[in-house]
Write a protein that binds this DNA or RNA. Structure first.
Lengths: 201, 201
DNA sequence: CGGATCGTTGATCAACTTCAACGGTCGTGG
DNA sequence: CCACGACCGTTGAAGTTGATCAACGATCCG
């Protein structure tokens, strides 16, 4: 079976070795539980009312996770680019229907692991369990920072903060996606940017 | 050594058994790594610029975690009551200086585990690792929901949502704490509540 | 070439904040 | 045990921030 290209295999192996120390057999076992999927721009990998059966590791490309309210407004909850994980965690962890979309912003390549496979991995080897624990903890810390920023800062300062940390990501995003991540309308984001240009000159 | 009262021991044991199946020795080993602390109302258990060395499990009482901006506004990031965990995760996980306060809202009793002790526990037994992984994952899902709510809902609907899920917590909170959790001023929260009373009659 | 999608701009409007003043309550020291 | 001050919630008026709506131009892709 060749579910995974050599390149993807290498990338995921290297990634996990940042967190736990695996021998070759272990690394192979870990990677073999993943499937490689090519995803076209605008294609969904998670949709509301369907259970998120997988966690997705981005080998190449970019994704956006968002929810749509009753009024039809969409709101970005997170992004993922190379070496990030993405899914609807609430759906995946509890295996309940998702409430959010996850959509590809570019043609992408992902490695995904099924809920049951991940469960097996966690049970099979203490190190794998450790790895997923670390990923979850880091996600937790990341979201706590995100909440803090969102509550404490004005729209303009949220934008500044994002650009100072993630301008490399911002370059790859359509502006409406960034706006909805930062919790403002595309129009207002446009005005903020315009203001900055004016101030500089 | 009697670091922990029988009551606290029983509560923590029962709690962890919800997630993993421990025999008596394991449960004892787990619990023995915790210290019981009595905390007075208004006392801090985490402070900015100090590293959060512990994760705290609330046996009895209530806590609030918040940050203070340069302008002096304070913003609540989370609460914890009985059977919840609280700390500055960003500080604890990376063992870096904290940016938030965690303060007791009532006279409370907590069980805390030191970073190094927790690390030992995780290494000692696969089940303990699993337990902490589950806690982290649930925290992650919780924060993702919280972000979604905060971005998508108006102030009044955030209040409604909170009350429908956590009115038992709201009863134990000062109103300014709830307001800053929901991302609005105490004055505005007061007006929302007043509006509702008027509508009912 | 033509339509859909995306970002921009300006005018108007709503949501929420800020500021200031007041009354109630709680805890602390005398 | 009372009195005082600090803290908390409330109310109203005025001010800001950011949303909404509508129209236009640019670009991308088929």
């Amino acid at each position: 079976m060749h579910l995974i290209s050599m390149n993807s295999k290498k990338i995921l192996s290297q990634y996990i070795q940042n967190f736990v120390d695996l021998n070759e057999d272990e690394a192979n076992q870990f990677v073999s539980c993943f499937e490689e999927i090519k995803v076209k721009k605008r294609q969904f990998i998670v949709q509301p009312n369907f259970i998120a059966h997988h966690v997705h590791f981005v080998v190449k490309g970019a994704f956006r996770s968002y929810v749509v309210t009753d009024e039809g407004n969409d709101h970005t909850t997170s992004f993922a680019i190379e070496n990030w994980w993405i899914t609807d965690y609430n759906s995946f962890i509890y295996q309940q229907p998702a409430t959010s979309f996850v959509i590809a912003l570019e043609d992408s390549v992902i490695l995904r692991v099924h809920y049951e496979k991940q469960k097996e991995l966690k049970q099979a080897n203490h190190k794998f369990e450790t790895f997923f624990r670390i990923i979850a903890e880091r996600g937790l810390a990341f979201f706590q920072r995100r909440i803090t920023n969102n509550i404490t800062l004005s729209a303009e300062r949220r934008y500044d903060q994002f650009m100072s940390k993630y301008s490399h990501i911002a370059q790859r995003l359509p502006q409406y996606a960034l706006a909805s991540f930062l919790g403002m309308t595309p129009e207002f984001l446009s005005k903020i940017r315009n203001n900055k240009v004016q101030k500089k000159s």
